[in-house]
Write a protein that binds this DNA or RNA. Sequence first.
DNA 1: TCTCATGGTTACGAATTGGTACCTACTGGC
DNA 2: GCCAGTAGGTACCAATTCGTAACCATGAGA
Lengths: 131, 131
Amino acid sequence: MTDTEPRKESVSCPMDFILRMLMGPWTTYILYNLKTHGPQRFGELKRRVAGISAKMLTERLRTLEGAGLLRRDYEATIPPKVTYSLTKRGHELDGVLGSLAEVGARWEAEDAAARSQRAAESKSAELRAAE
Amino acid sequence: MTDTEPRKESVSCPMDFILRMLMGPWTTYILYNLKTHGPQRFGELKRRVAGISAKMLTERLRTLEGAGLLRRDYEATIPPKVTYSLTKRGHELDGVLGSLAEVGARWEAEDAAARSQRAAESKSAELRAAE
DNA sequence: TCTCATGGTTACGAATTGGTACCTACTGGC
DNA sequence: GCCAGTAGGTACCAATTCGTAACCATGAGA
């Protein structure tokens, strides 16, 4: 951890780097917002990703910027205006995140169906027991 | 945080749940190994995911099992034999993880190319400076 | 003059995380 | 008898993480 994380590089897993970034607590919300609402300023983003602290947002944005997923445009006006937007690389994730979201949504739907199924079964079991 | 994390559910992001799982420190290695080497026993997996502690492996496996991504087959022989294998749901991630790995590999290659490019440039700059 | 907003940074502190060491119960090999 | 290996569970401890609060400079509006 002291230098550039030599720990796990021996294990061959190319998607690890990329997951290690998406992993961050708020990362997906930030990318999602930038994707759906377009380029945004710091405060705008902070308001939209409800609950995030300025510190975390800054840190996440810096990380994502460092990874080349988004661009930071600083205008030294008074008050300063900082706009964040997805880079080409950031948009390359759209497809992957999209299919990830699709799988997630499918599972959610399946789980909901299974739950209501079980609920119906326990209901009918109650009815049978009540007879 | 007190109950079942009501904090972030208001933000619509269906892929968050799924990322929250892949997120775990060793998760991708485990899935990767199960995918490429097929069903494996605990010790086998532990040996292959070099560096993981038994505690973490157990915890990750339980989480993944709970999420329905893998199956735990326990045979109460002496010594006990526990085999882990990907479920149908686990295999549904193959595609997504595959394209994620692809993007990751592409970026890695691009970065490497950019690095050698820069190295060559600084080399030629040194040569020019040495003249 | 006081306050708000902009886009952060810094210090502190509590909570979570993950590793290490030790424990289970059982058998086979030396 | 002792150790190894099977598949973990548990307690403890250090490190990391993340939120909160305070602070910066600046101008606009009340």
